[in-house]
Write a protein that binds this DNA or RNA. Structure first.
Lengths: 212, 212, 212, 212
DNA sequence: CATGAATGAGGGTTCATTCAT
DNA sequence: CATGAATGAACCCTCATTCAT
């Protein structure tokens, strides 16, 4: 029985993920409110009603997706930071991971980011079950910032950063630059050349942060 | 009679603007699709049906608002550029205008920006009457970029910019930084200290662009 | 004052009729429910609100129009019947009047006829003020039948009719034939050749009623 | 599984037809534009939204109904024509079928006929998906005329028709007479005596067409 | 009287969610 | 678990009618 249960759980998880894969695609194209469950279901090869066997509602699908995606991203980022490396080296790796991630799997991020802003005004309306998911997501979102902060602080200690701006601000700026690139991609309807974007970003950052 | 007509037009315009003011508030909070006409109407002190005396549909309300806001912004930006001034001087003025504008009048900008991305995938579905409004808006949106480009190119000619990045990219980065600040404000639920933001931005840009 | 009152009444009547002229055009094209007051007003050169200075509501416009038109028709029919003439002569005149009338002024009749059928199921819902108008119309509608019956009975007395069908039925059939022609015109989008229609009708009737 | 699918399709078709039955009742009473989906739904024992599981919109309900009804009618008419029989025999059968059909199942026909006229002015506004349904209906509508024409032409060949009117016109007249009877029924609120109507019609036609 | 503006009362349609099988 | 079907709750938009000027 234990084996059977495991197998069943395995299958269930697999199907859950198929749904999230479908959801990512649709949410990325249309955003949260424009996305219809019907579309996700079709994309996933399920019927609309079946989605409810895996997630309790649209919001949970969205948040589960967001959490899953950020987990993946965080995992990649976690192994990437190398204290002994130079700031720009670390950011080059971070940019590569983040841009390829957002580009390939996550045009959805723009939606998410707007959604995140939206959520701040929504807490009252959200049911209790959802607050947990929401907070989980916020924590992950913040971890990315912390990852950047870690890189920055580490570089500051090693005197690699000359600019007289507090680390928080620098981190926000870097986040903004990344988001701006994703945004441009979204408008153009497709990813650009990642390596070129990385080079440009590094050039800009090097000038801004390092060479003073 | 001419006087009477003028007065009537004046009143009509005033009411149109009251509606747009209400629309701005609601769109800023909820975004386009989540916004209900009922809310705009109530906020404006009208009945829902009355909105249709001034605008032909929801889309037109949104685009009229976007165009009105961008007109105001463009007007402020137009008089601000001074070729003889230094790059940072020009950007300081631009930041002040844009940030105060977006802060006070235009939390709505995030919505707009997403909407703009959305529109790229929509052109087929939009009715002919609306395409005009949409293009009008796009033109205005692009003008802001051109304004920035003008500042940058002017500075480049005067050798104020050292960084080896093409002007377009620099302009996108600056836009991203501004948008990032607005975005943070939105999440925090209110504007931050504009002068401090400007100082930080200028510090960052000075380092990035000027001192190499 | 009396003169002034008369002049005012004259003007008022003229304007009322302008509205009805406009109403006839629109009702003829769209039918009762599809017609919007706005269209009638525009067609008449008034604002929508002004219509209410002349008629209390849409229904009254429609019924007033129907009554006015039928009055005109009845007037023309009244002077047309000549007892000493042969059945076919009388019907030739009737056809000419009715067809030209319906064609020129009254494609609206199809609408009316459907409306009449509709009214039978409506009496409960109609307000008291309107029942008078409705009955007035019904009376006029019936008068046309009586006019036809008169012709038929007269012909029967003079032994011009051979067919063994009661006069009522014959009258209904003739009405149906006329209505059928109007109906075809409506579908084709315009009147046909009246004289040819009359000839065909007379040929048919002659054969049906007279020559047995 | 094939069995299950068949059963499901059977049920689905049955429900579709229940909706059309309800629609027929309401459309017959109120006409197309005056009919509210809510009423059809209630009459059919569904919620308004459920109708959309079977038909994509109001127009499709109407046209599906019209097509279904005309299919039934055409089927009955198809087997009825017997070339060797006399004109009056054939028309007697046709009248019986048509009158009983329109009486029992099809008070709705008057609405349809007006709708048909309406459609001629509408083609531009109708969406592409609907044009197919509309044309399907028109074809069926025309087939009835052709059925009558077939009877007439057959009789003409056998010299059973004396009257010097082209067959088209005769067909239109017969259609008009039938429609006139339905129309009277509609006004009276119920069917009359079919056999008596048929006798009268045959008597009239015999006199008009045959005995010259 | 004329009219621009306001609005209540819907009407068709959509969609997340529930239910029965 | 899967799903076709059912539905309540909105939402956008329309229009006859009213009102203030």
């Amino acid at each position: 029985m234990d084996l059977k249960e495991k197998r069943e759980k395995f299958i269930r998880d697999a199907k859950s993920n198929i749904i999230l894969d479908a959801a990512r695609k649709v949410f990325a194209e249309k955003g949260f409110h424009q996305t219809r469950l019907e579309e996700i279901a079709t994309e996933a090869g399920f019927s609309k009603a079946s989605l409810y066997n895996y997630y309790s509602d649209k919001f949970e699908i969205f948040m589960s997706l967001a959490n899953r995606e950020f987990d993946l991203l965080l995992e990649k980022l976690r192994v990437l930071f190398k204290p002994q490396e130079h700031l720009l080296e670390n950011f080059e790796n971070l940019f590569r991971v983040v841009l390829s991630f957002f580009g390939e799997h996550f045009a959805f991020v723009v939606t998410t980011m707007n959604f995140r802003a939206m959520c701040e005004n929504m807490q009252v309306e959200i049911e209790k079950d959802h607050i947990l998911l929401l907070n989980e997501f916020k924590n992950k979102f913040n971890k990315i910032n912390k990852m950047q902060l870690m890189i920055i602080e580490n570089a500051r200690l090693k005197n690699e950063i000359k600019i007289d701006l507090d680390d928080e601000t620098v981190s926000v700026y870097i986040t903004s630059l990344i988001r701006g690139i994703i945004f441009e991609w979204k408008i153009r309807g497709g990813m650009g050349d990642i390596e070129k974007e990385i080079n440009n970003l590094l050039l800009f950052l090097k000038s801004a942060l390092v060479c003073l």
